[in-house]
Structure formats: structure tokens, C-alpha cells
Design a protein around this nucleic acid. Structure first.
Lengths: 244, 244
DNA sequence: CACTATTTGTCCGTATGTATG
DNA sequence: TCATACATACGGACAAATAGT
């Protein structure tokens, strides 16, 4: 019944179980939860543990506990917290983003990429690529919400920070002679590693929205790879679809 | 740094983080994980805690630990071929996905939506909408990778499961008389809550890719809201961009 | 060959959190 | 409320294996 490979405190397991039961509508609003004694018999846990789980539900406002009465459900079943969309700071497209936000270049130099990257570029392990790391935040020293790493197959690019203050990266690359053909993007989600967590001021393991953009030249040779990590609370991808 | 809403042991949190990183291919087979000391500095945890997380990975066979050497990834990079859905183009293309996958309808009935949903539809709190919950998995009883919830403003829709076996949801809605104009999509990331975690067989708090699609009729009135949660290890959104 | 730096393995003591009766 | 037992997390110390000088 409560088999869970994850090590988790007993009281929290029970809390989750009841939390889910209430949300799924198993207990209607106003209904009475099993008493501490009943739960004790059903689960085999001690009464203190049961009490702690019920107290956490009460603290959250999901139930109300009254001595001599029992534990009553106080909550109208809602299927999910999917309403968690405050619609703040949503940015319609990448170009407009530049107006309200600014980019800081953290690093720019030629480096030998990690194995997986080198494989995608089909280069030998000792070859170098232009490696740029950037971070985007809201203007006026606002919070950071994006962390970019890019690898580019380009020769003799001046590894200086200054030009990035005025022009976007892709534009600089085009001015340096790169010509793009197909561009392929993938959107996914990942847990924040320690590096990204630090840069985006998030706890370790926090969900991130990730974008991987592969840009090819006219002969379908990969020449630019961008890996972006976004704080999903401050940024989401938005698009309009129209029937034709 | 590690805010804990869920009481989960630190060592297990780190274990999960590394587990996911290895599975996602962030560390190639044979690659060296950060040393205990490096992880100690990056995460701020004590060495014993770090060690326990690494030991669990070793016990599982994902890594091999050698004193004087370090911790080496032993895992053959998974046959990860995430399914993908095209972003641009007609919605119908999205249904091509249906060839390798199948949908199970978990619930279909008229319900009063939670407050946040009702607000988006601009209906009064006691009005009902058609509420459908579905789950998509790979064929032949394969793993589930998507969990859908939808709210639809439509009258007298037969709340039966059977038609969904042969036709996609949007097509059924159109056949029932709905006409769509603008459609708005947002892609983000969220941590798995207990409900979604169970449905997708993922640990609590696992990063999920989320899609919210708002469909409006010809008069720009919201008539359908779809909230989708994806396992990012099995599914990602993909799009092609072309210079014009 | 020794010497050193690195890295993991093992052990100690202590403090706090969890769970029982 | 209390006493007890166990798990978690910390910091420190030392030993053993490895690689490079």
C-alpha cells in the first residue's frame, strides 16, 4: 500500500496519501476523515505519526480538526495546481525579449568541447570550438532567468565581450561570415545542476525549461549549438497557432 | 541553498539529481563524475552525504567507484529516443504521434472547475465544464509519458470513453460543433506533484515539460483549455526553423 | 625507487530529526 | 510528555589505492 522506493518520512507518506485522496475527491468537502485510531489500525503507524500527518493537512488548510468531533475536509476538490499561471513576465518572442532584458557574457573563448558535443559536430576530441556562456536577466539588475551555453564552429572570432552589449549573438556570427540554412530546436525539461542552480539562483534540482538549438549551414553541416536553461517561473515559451 | 518543501533526505536528492544527469547523457559512459570534494564544494553538503549518494549509484550499477581514481559512469547511454511533436504547423500533425502511442481516457465528466480555471473561462464558480483526463503511453503497454487534463465549454457532449479510442479529442469536439479560431500555446517546466508523479511513474518533484493550450472560438471566447504534462526523458517538443 | 597530490574507504563523535511505546 | 532507538547530516581524522614527478 505504501510501498515507495524513495526514503521519505512516514508522516509525510501518510500526508501525501491523504492529500491525494482528498484532491481526487475520495473524501467530499465536509466529510469526516478516519479517526487517528482508525488510521493507526489501518496503517500500523503510531498515533504520534498519524497526528503529525493530519496536523500538516490542517496547517495547509485542507482539513479542520476539532476535538471530540474528528477531522473534517475543508477543501473543494481541484484536480491539479495547474492554475499556477500568474502570467507574469511572459515574453512573446526572442527579439522583443531584448528590450526588457539584458545579457551578460560570462565567458568567451576557444575550448575543446566535451565528448557529446564533439560527437554532434563530428570533430576530433582535440579540436576547439568557440564557447560562449551568457546569462540573461531582467533590466536594472533584476533576477536572472536564462543561462546560455553555445558552441560554434567559426575561425578567428574575436573573443571579446564588448560587442555583445549592443548586438545579439547570432547577428555577430552572421556578420563574421556564418550563413545558416536549417535550424532545429528542441524543448524539454531538466533538473538544475549545481552550476545552473547557482547562476539562476534556484535550489539544486529545480525544474528548468531547456532549449537546444542546432544551426546548420547551407550544406547541412552543424555550425552552431545553443543550449539554454530557463527558470520556468520567470520564462515560458509562447506561440500562436492559426487554422488555415 | 536546498530549500526543502518535501522532507526528502539530502543524500537521496543528490542521488536523484545524478541519476537523472547520467540518464540524460550529461555524463558519457566512462566519463568521470565530479569528485566527492568537488561535489562538496558545489552543493555545500558534507562528504559523508555525498558519499552515500554516490554509493547508491554504485550499488545500482550506474557508476563504478575506485579509490585514487574517482567515480566512473558505467551506464550505457540509454536507447533514449524521445518521441517528439512538431511545434509549427497544423495541430493535426500532432496527432501523427498517435501511430506509435496510445491514449487511455481516465475520466470524462462534467465538473465545476477550480477557481483559477473558472476565472480563465470567465464563468461563475458553480458552472460546469467538460473535464477529461487522459494518459498517453507507448504502444503495447509501454511506459506512460504524457498526462492530459482538459476543460471544455461544450453542451451535451456524451461523456463516454469509447469514441476516444478511434478519434483524437479535438476532432470529436469539432464534430460536436465547436469551431476554433485562435489557439495559444505556452511551454514551461514544473516539478511533478504527487498525482502526476504517480501517473507517469516518476519520483515526486521530477522535472516535467508542461504545455498549456488555450483554444478560442471565432469570437475570441475561450472554449477549450488543455494542460499537458510530459516526462522529459521520453518526450520533447521539436521544431524546424527556416530562413526566408 | 621514494615522494607527493588526489581520491575513495573507514571510523569517530556530535547534533538533530524521525518513530515507537 | 517522556524515554528510547534509529536515521540523517555534519566535521574531522586517518588509511589505502592510484597516478604523476
Amino acid at each position: 500500500m505504501l510501498e515507495n522506493s524513495d526514503p521519505m518520512p512516514l508522516y509525510h507518506k501518510l500526508y501525501q496519501l491523504l492529500h491525494q485522496a482528498i484532491h481526487s475527491g475520495a473524501f467530499a468537502t465536509g466529510a469526516k476523515l478516519p479517526t487517528e485510531k482508525q488510521l493507526q489500525e489501518e496503517t500500523g503507524m503510531s498515533r504520534v505519526t498519524i497526528k503529525r500527518a493530519l496536523d500538516e493537512l490542517a496547517l495547509e488548510g485542507l482539513v479542520v480538526r476539532r476535538r471530540g468531533i474528528g477531522t473534517l475536509v475543508q477543501y473543494a476538490p481541484s484536480p491539479l495546481q495547474a492554475t499556477h499561471a500568474p502570467l507574469r513576465g511572459l515574453l512573446e518572442n526572442l527579439e522583443e525579449m531584448g528590450r526588457n532584458t539584458q545579457v551578460k557574457v560570462l565567458q568567451i573563448k576557444y575550448q575543446t568541447p566535451p565528448e557529446g558535443i564533439a560527437a554532434q559536430f563530428k570533430i576530433s576530441p582535440e579540436d576547439t570550438l568557440l564557447h560562449i556562456i551568457r546569462r540573461r536577466n531582467f533590466q536594472n539588475g533584476g533576477r536572472s532567468f536564462a543561462y546560455y551555453q553555445s558552441w560554434t564552429r567559426i575561425k578567428n572570432f574575436p573573443a571579446k565581450v564588448t560587442p555583445f552589449r549592443s548586438k545579439p549573438r547570432l547577428q555577430l556570427l552572421r556578420e563574421a561570415g556564418l550563413v545558416f540554412g536549417e535550424i532545429h530546436q528542441r524543448l524539454g525539461a531538466q533538473a538544475a545542476d549545481s552550476n545552473t542552480a547557482r547562476e539562476l539562483q534556484l535550489p539544486l534540482g529545480h525544474p528548468l525549461l531547456t532549449l537546444t538549438r542546432s544551426s546548420y549551414d547551407r550544406r547541412s553541416v552543424l555550425c552552431d549549438l545553443l543550449i539554454a536553461h530557463y527558470n520556468p517561473e520567470l520564462f515560458e515559451y509562447q506561440m500562436e497557432l492559426r487554422r488555415e
